[in-house]
Amino acid sequence: MTDTYDLSTDIVDRIAGLTPGSPAFATRHKRDKVAFATQRSYEALFDPALPDLSLTDRLLVALYACTLSKAPALATHYAQRLASINADRAVIDQIAQGSIDAQEPRLRAMLAFTRMLIEAPIDGDRTALERLPAAGIPTPAVVALAQLIAFLSYQIRLTAGLRALQVLNATEAA
């Protein structure tokens, strides 16, 4: 994680296709501290040294959340990150296609929880949470997983909104 904000590494700007000088970029960066905080959150949540959940598990959850949310650019980003750390290609491909049944029980439980929070967050009750420790996921990892899914939901919606804003700006300019 860095203490400075490098525009060239901003994941949201890159995934949304924002370029300095564009109206959508200017809108997003009116409050640079929010863009900075979003990037810092991304860096913190995907820091390889973060305890409780492996980086591979976190990236697989991210890939699955993006697949479920029909966010292909973000899904591609997370699949590439998984490939860069030599994650199992078969697992990446299965999850990218929305298939979780063939996964080992611990990962399947995390992905099922991800699906529930992405598709039906109101169902994220005590019973849903209790399935995670039953699959061998300790409480600190459950908390980390819930925080990760909340961030991913925000990231997915933010990039979708910025892409829509770009399309609107392009339509108005034409």
Rank of each mutant, 00 (worst) to 15 (best):
Q94T: 08
Q97I: 00
G136T: 02
Q97M: 14
L82I: 09
L111Q: 02
L132G: 05
R89Y: 08
L74I: 00
G136E: 09
A128I: 10
Y78E: 00
D123I: 00
Q97A: 14
R131G: 09
A134I: 05
A112N: 12
T139N: 07
D101A: 15
K70F: 07
A90E: 15
A128T: 05
D125F: 11
D88K: 08
P133M: 13
I118H: 09
L132Y: 09
M116P: 00
I95V: 15
L111F: 07
R131V: 11
V142F: 04
Q94N: 13
L74V: 00
Q97H: 12
L117K: 06
R106H: 06
T127W: 11
D101K: 08
R126C: 03
P140M: 10
R131W: 03
A141I: 11
I92P: 03
E119M: 07
I122M: 15
P121R: 02
A144W: 01
Q80L: 03
A141G: 08
V143K: 11
L132V: 06
D101S: 14
V91Q: 06
E130F: 14
L82C: 10
G124Y: 04
Y78N: 01
A128E: 05
A102V: 06
A83C: 09
V143Y: 12
D123F: 05
I137K: 00
E104I: 03
Q94P: 01
I137V: 14
D93N: 13
D93L: 15
E104S: 11
G98W: 10
M116T: 10
A71Y: 01
R108I: 07
A79P: 01
L82N: 02
A90T: 15
